[in-house]
Amino acid sequence: MATAAVGLRAGAARFEANTATRDPVWVKGLVLFLGLAFFSLFLLLPLIAVFVEAFRRGWGVYIAALVEPDAVSAIKLTLLTAAIAVPLNLVFGIAVAWAITKFDFRGKQMLITFIDLPFSVSPVVAGLIYVLVFGAQGWFGPWLGEHGIKVIFAVPGIVLATVFVTFPFVARELIPLMQAQGRDEEEAALVLGASGWQMFRKVTLPNIKWALLYGVILCNARAMGEFGAVSVVSGHIRGLTNTMPLHVEILYNEYQFAAAFAVASLLATLALVTLAIKTYVEWKAAPSTPPAEAP
């Protein structure tokens, strides 16, 4: 079964016990050493550094950096942005997965390719395209200006850019799963007399809930952490159009390192919580893992 989640199936013992798949001890040692050294150098160390740098000047400075008004408004804007972008892409993800996996129509393959487009576009380009459409010199700029609506260098632009970069997350978790599940169960529900909404709520939703949650937390992490795209459309107006990652940048460029790392540590904590939930979901969603085998 192809689930989107990559679980850590308790299988290494099987390979180490088998004479045909067992590696010599020195090979195991070398692979582990190189792999883990690489892991420590490029992943573990940067993560630890965030927290060490954040607390370098003590708790007082740390707390002060987080309750300072500009920081608070950045946190609020980040939460607001995620609160709009994530539900929008959640609804889109379900709609597109439903259309693609439950029906046959022409152009389906192209649609699937289009979903991944935002992932392959540089975040900077993602920001740029909204400047071209809504900016002062853009397509709708003059019209928006006349009506006193600001999109670029304002909150709507930030939300739009965030929606763009987080666009595929939910959809790409749902599509392979729903493809594998097929249409039988929904058809059975209809045959048994369920309405469309009942079928969706009682049959489809329970089957996809873990993949849905998985997509949502990844979408949320990216929405809160996006930097490049938001940086282009934000205008960096302190207290107004700064999200947390942009606030980190400003503090860093002003050599307020401890404060920059303090705000960064909040984002790093968010990343760790995301990974924890993700690991939990993978564990929950992997039906092939026999519970007794957990070490």
């Binding site: 965030v50 960064a264 968010l270 990974l275």
Partner: peptide, 11 residues
């Protein structure tokens, strides 16, 4: 995937 790129950058 989960760590904001700006955080990775300064770290």
């Amino acid at each position: 995937f989960a760590l904001p790129t700006a955080v990775a950058g300064i770290s």
